[in-house]
Amino acid sequence: MSLSEKYYELCYTRRIHEYSKIDQYKNWPQGQACKIYGSLARFYQDELNINSDQLNQLRTKFKRFNKLYSKYFNEHRKALFEDPEKLLEWYDRQNDSCNYCGTTQSVLHKIVKRRNGNLTLNKKTKRSKGTLEIEKLDPSKDYTYENSVLSCPFCNNAKSNLISEEDWRRFFAPAMKDYFKSILFT
């Protein structure tokens, strides 16, 4: 197993981000890892047999993946995150825009700004920050690279599992573009 694979296993598969996870991983009594390591970095250095510079290089290598993992990972999407390089390739092909209406992340942020810090009108949902979301093209299938795209919260929420991708593009995506223009330019 390569160093990157081992780091991935510890950080993303086993999710070792606190001492209690180290205790579980090592089958130690609770509190033992804190006494032995003193820092999570020290655990990773010892476990991977590397120095602090090498650990920093690994963390830098995984920085973009970690950002996407923090933003999008959940158990339903787990398969998308099993190969960091493949996920980054898939993400880059999305062009940081909605697969349906073409709205970019920067446009969503402008809408949030126009709406005084929220994307939603009621200021209550998780979509209040205006982040592109991972959407399944065919809701009856799993999250795979072939069946997943980035979608703006508007298209994702409205299309849901009620309208096919083809029909959404044909009937609703043009209207979404017009709607965004009305928010930004009125």
Rank of each mutant, 00 (worst) to 15 (best):
A79S: 08
Y143H: 09
V107G: 00
Q45D: 10
Y37Q: 07
T120N: 04
T60L: 11
N51H: 05
N122Q: 09
T125P: 04
N56I: 11
G117F: 15
L58C: 08
V107N: 00
K123Y: 11
S151Y: 12
Q105P: 01
D92S: 12
T120F: 05
R114F: 14
L137F: 07
Y145M: 14
K63M: 11
L119Y: 15
L137Q: 01
L80Y: 01
H109S: 11
K141T: 12
K113M: 08
N74T: 14
L132P: 01
N147P: 02
T125S: 15
T104F: 05
R127W: 06
Y44S: 07
D142A: 15
V112H: 11
L68N: 12
N156P: 07
W90R: 03
L87Q: 00
N56S: 03
T104Y: 07
P139W: 15
P84N: 05
P84Q: 09
D96S: 11
S140R: 13
K78F: 09
K110G: 01
L108A: 00
Y72H: 14
N147L: 06
L80Q: 02
A158T: 13
L55C: 04
Y72F: 14
D46H: 01
S164Y: 07
C155L: 02
N116H: 15
L80T: 01
G117L: 13
L48Q: 09
E75R: 14
N95T: 04
N56L: 07
